[in-house]
Write a protein that binds this DNA or RNA. Structure first.
Length: 518
RNA sequence: GAGUCCGUAGCUCAGUUGGCUAGAGCACUUGACUUUUAAUCAAGGGGUCCUGGGUUCGAGCCCCAGCGGACUCACCA
């Protein structure tokens, strides 16, 4: 592998450290007693106050230094942020031997190296809270130069590390030099933990169900197929976990939820990654009306936990997550945005309506799909504030219970925010006879050419025959919800490691894969 | 999958109608400097111009193909 000039220099610096008796990768733990943010926010040196943080120990990456002869300022970046450190030659080298300053600090340390410092906090003439270093320890040498992103006092960024490909492929670099990226993932983590906390507080049980499934049920999507050698059978990466969670309701749990990865072998773009995180929850003895109220409470709780408030800006629009949200039936929403009442139309009339609205259709589309097309084309984009769309045509929803009062509809809602679906819920179908018929209708759609039609799962039907209590279920796309809560407009920005094409191997560099050097 | 744009130093980017040895800032090296902060000052090193063909006296630039990426559109969450 061809090393750059700077990589060679860093290796030489590492060697010289060894020659000075300094292990560039010491095994000992380094005791940390304070963090950058903590010191910067908590330091007191006002009138009549005794300064605190007078004996602290911090560690982190060296992210820049300003050497002025016998004294220097450097930037130390730990997990909480950056703090300035002051290093004076005669402080860290009290004796005759000035090597630690003149050689180690000035020559052999590089940007990106992990160091530990012990000293005391003070305020410089310029007013910056700084650690006055008494002891300096090398903790880990960095052999590859990091991009150096500079910021001036107005917050302007120079030489930003912004290339999306490099940022996603080398997320560790992105996280090191772009502090705002780290914030997004902290929020993602807060979002998931808030959700979990909310569910656990209700007494619902977090469960795990199979990722490798013999039948890819519960949703309409193309799966990843794999093969189990010992059983010599095909297995599919799950596209949904719905049918397994319902089996657990059959088995007697009143509330179960799972937060986990789903896998769909479909296109990739700024809202789709082949694997994505979804939360599904099923609560016995509830219906979709109850579930809407729960979602309102949940999202308000999450918004507060993640952003501190219920108003969250997205793409310049202020989204209000405080409930209650507007509730609108699918037919009413279409009437509102097109002026057309489709509630009494048959398939031919719907097809004609699509034509008049300039919506492309094909012969494989049934009644439900046609309605979905109209909705997707004419309504979705208008649903900016959180809005529940309720009561979907039965054809497109084979796992939901028939509507209690309107023929041809099911008890389903989707929650739309900023024109995008972020939650989907039903009053679950628990009538095993009806469920079998619905699966059979799906098979007919499949024969007609609908590639997304759902497969029939005999074991699931068997479980329903034993009896499932009335139940409401809900699914939420965690990645998309994270996008909304962090004002990020592509899914890659909320996934640490979004799926990428394989990296082109460099010539003479068979170990281009990460980790191959180790 | 379709369209548009892009690929030059470790990073961010210039590079004219094709014309001398391919440039800048940061980073790096050497030197000066004991409260600086995008530190400053002086000097210096660093390039497979994505890859492979082609046109040409001559290609970073033009043509063809490929690889990789970004954006927009279509489908799934």
């Amino acid at each position: 592998m061809q090393l750059s000039e700077q990589e060679i220099l860093r290796r030489e610096n590492m060697q010289q450290l060894r020659e000075l008796g300094i292990d560039p990768y010491p095994p000992e733990a380094f005791e940390v007693t304070a963090y950058a943010k903590q010191v910067k926010e908590g330091f007191k040196d006002g009138e009549g106050e005794t300064p605190n943080f007078q004996e602290v120990s911090l560690s982190g990456r060296l992210m820049g230094s300003r050497v002025m002869g016998k004294a220097s300022f450097a930037e130390l970046q730990d997990t909480t942020g950056r703090i300035q450190v002051y290093i004076a030659r005669d402080e860290i080298c009290p004796g005759e031997d000035k090597d630690l300053y003149n050689k180690v600090f000035k020559k052999l340390l590089d940007i990106g190296d992990f160091i530990g410092v012990k000293g005391f906090a003070f305020r410089t003439r310029m007013g910056e809270i700084t650690i006055h270093v008494k002891e300096l320890t090398v903790l880990s040498k960095s052999l590859k130069p990091l991009p150096v992103v500079k910021r001036d006092e107005e917050g302007n960024v120079y030489d930003a590390f912004t290339d999306p490909e490099q940022r996603y492929r080398q997320r560790y670099v992105d996280l090191t030099v772009n502090p705002e990226v780290r914030e997004v993932f902290l929020k993602r983590s807060k979002l998931i933990s808030a959700m979990r906390r909310y569910f656990d507080g209700q007494g619902w049980l977090e469960v795990e169900t199979p990722i490798l499934q013999p039948i890819h049920g519960g949703a309409a999507a193309r799966p990843f197929a794999t093969h189990h050698n010992t059983l010599d059978m095909p297995l599919y990466m799950r596209i949904a976990n719905e049918l397994y969670l319902k089996r657990l309701i059959v088995g007697g749990f009143d509330g179960v939820y799972e937060i986990g990865k789903m896998f769909r072998n479909e296109g990739m773009d700024r809202t789709h990654n082949p694997e994505f995180t979804s939360m599904e929850i099923y609560i016995a003895y509830k219906d979709y009306n109850w579930m809407m109220a729960m979602v309102e409470e949940l999202l308000e709780y999450i918004a507060k936990a993640v952003t501190g408030g219920t108003q969250v800006e997205y793409e310049g629009k202020m989204i209000n997550y405080a409930g209650p949200y507007r509730r609108l039936s699918m037919y009413d929403s279409i009437k509102e945005y097109t002026g057309i009442d489709i509630s009494e139309m048959d398939e031919a009339a719907l097809r004609q309506t699509c034509k008049s609205l300039h919506i492309e259709v094909d012969s494989s589309m049934g009644k439900g799909k046609l309605i979905d097309e109209i909705f997707g084309e004419k309504v979705e984009e208008h649903l900016i504030q959180p809005t529940f769309i309720t009561d979907y045509p039965i054809e497109m929803t084979p796992l939901a219970k028939k509507h209690r009062s309107v023929e041809g509809l099911v008890e389903r809602f989707e929650l739309f925010v900023n024109g995008k679906e972020i939650a989907n819920a039903y009053t679950e179908l628990n009538d095993p006879i009806d469920q079998r018929e619905r699966f059979e209708d799906q098979l007919k759609l499949a024969e007609r050419g609908d590639e997304e039609a759902m497969a029939l799962d005999e074991d699931f039907l068997r479980s329903l025959e034993y009896g499932m209590p009335p139940t409401s279920g809900l699914g939420i796309g965690i990645d998309r919800l994270t996008m909304l809560m962090t004002d990020k407009h592509s899914i890659q920005e909320v996934l640490f490691f979004p799926q990428m094409r394989p990296q082109k191997k460099q010539e003479g560099e068979p170990g281009a894969e990460p980790g191959a050097e180790a």
